[in-house]
């Protein structure tokens, strides 16, 4: 098992959930809880695949995926922001709706080959030993994911618009009183979240699998939601979470393929994890770590750091 190759694959394996959770993070920082990530991902997976096949270009496919995800999230935005429906129920309904729409649209795309997505080696950087193959020999969407993390971090922490978005998420009444357009800002955040989820879904259908299969996301959207909580709504921790969640399951499969068992040697005798325990441990590790992180950051000194956005999940009406 080549550790360099493994880390490079880990970057690829974590990209779909990274993109989807990053979008959801921005949505939640604006005070809206959209549980429809799974639905938007799979909608992006099929619209991206369809666009990619129609234009024979994977990159244009990703444009179609972002548009598809955003279109579905627009439906959610209208229902939640203007018709003030319950966000949890609407989000769940969006997932069911997205799964159904994708299955319907996807009927004629079974067994069709996806257009190839070329790897883009970044000149010079790709030739650095060790780091080169891990970081700089991927397709453009992997770089886009990393760039978006940096961009979102900068936007939230260093830009005026980001500050406004956070204000809307913390206390929408106060932000409204200050004259900020709460609904307009939230609409933009939701559209961004939908586009990101669509990109994440299309990464599955265009690069990672790569083909259209009904149910191709298989629960990745729910993991993306968990990562946002794991990251306590912070972009850089989110990157760590995506690598952890995406990487561990990939690592687990590789350990099986190579028949490698984790263990240690002590005083000349070797102790190894039993095969079934190792597999189960790896499968549950991301969730165990999430619980651990939540316990740690919500206790004692770190308590302030948990800080979910104050208005998260609450409907806003200007009359109140």
């Amino acid at each position: 098992m080549d550790p360099i190759l493994l880390l490079a694959s880990l970057m690829v394996a974590s990209t779909p959930i990274l993109l989807a959770s990053l979008g959801e993070l921005v949505v939640e920082r604006s005070g809206v809880l959209n549980l429809g990530v799974e639905g938007m991902m799979i909608t992006g997976a099929i619209t991206g695949f369809a666009a990619g096949v129609a234009t024979n270009s994977a990159l244009l496919g990703f444009v179609g995926a972002a548009a598809g995800g955003a279109a579905l999230s627009l439906l959610f935005a209208v229902l939640v922001l203007w018709l003030r429906s319950n966000q949890v129920a609407t989000g769940l309904a969006l997932t069911l709706f997205g799964l159904g729409v994708a299955a319907l649209v996807g009927q004629s795309y079974n067994g069709i080959r996806a257009p190839a997505m070329p790897d883009f080696r970044i000149p010079l950087l790709a030739d650095i030993p060790v780091l080169g193959p891990i970081l700089f020999r991927h397709d453009l969407v992997v770089y886009l994911g990393l760039a978006l993390v940096a961009g979102v971090w900068w936007f939230l922490n260093r830009s005026r618009a980001g500050l406004t978005l956070r204000a809307v998420g913390e206390n929408h009444d106060a932000a409204h009183a200050l004259g900020y357009k709460v609904l307009r800002l939230r609409l933009l955040a939701i559209l961004f979240g939908g586009a990101c989820a669509g990109l994440g879904g299309a990464y599955l259908s265009l690069v990672r699998v790569p083909q259209w299969t009904e149910g191709v996301t298989a629960g990745a959207g729910w993991i993306a939601l968990a990562i946002v909580v794991f990251a306590s709504w912070r972009p850089l921790r989110l990157l760590l979470g995506a690598w952890l969640f995406g990487g561990i399951s990939y690592l687990q499969l590789n350990l099986q393929a190579a028949d490698v068992r984790l263990g240690f040697s002590l005083f000349g005798s070797r102790w190894e994890l039993p095969a079934d325990l190792q597999t189960l441990l790896f499968a549950s590790a991301p969730y165990l770590v999430t619980i651990l992180v939540l316990v740690l950051i919500s206790s004692g000194k770190g308590r302030a750091a948990l800080a979910a956005p104050g208005s998260l999940g609450q409907p806003f009406h200007a009359s109140r």
Binding site: M1, D2, L5, S9, A13, P16, L204, R208, V209, P210, Q211, T213, G215, V216, T217, A218, G219, A220, S249, Y250, L253, N254, Q256, A257, A258
Partner: peptide, 17 residues
């Protein structure tokens, strides 16, 4: 029984071996 991404990853892990 059904998780396309995981099944693809499993196949890739084998091919790497």
């Amino acid at each position: 029984w059904f998780d396309p991404a995981k099944e693809a990853d499993a196949a890739k892990a084998m091919i790497e071996q």
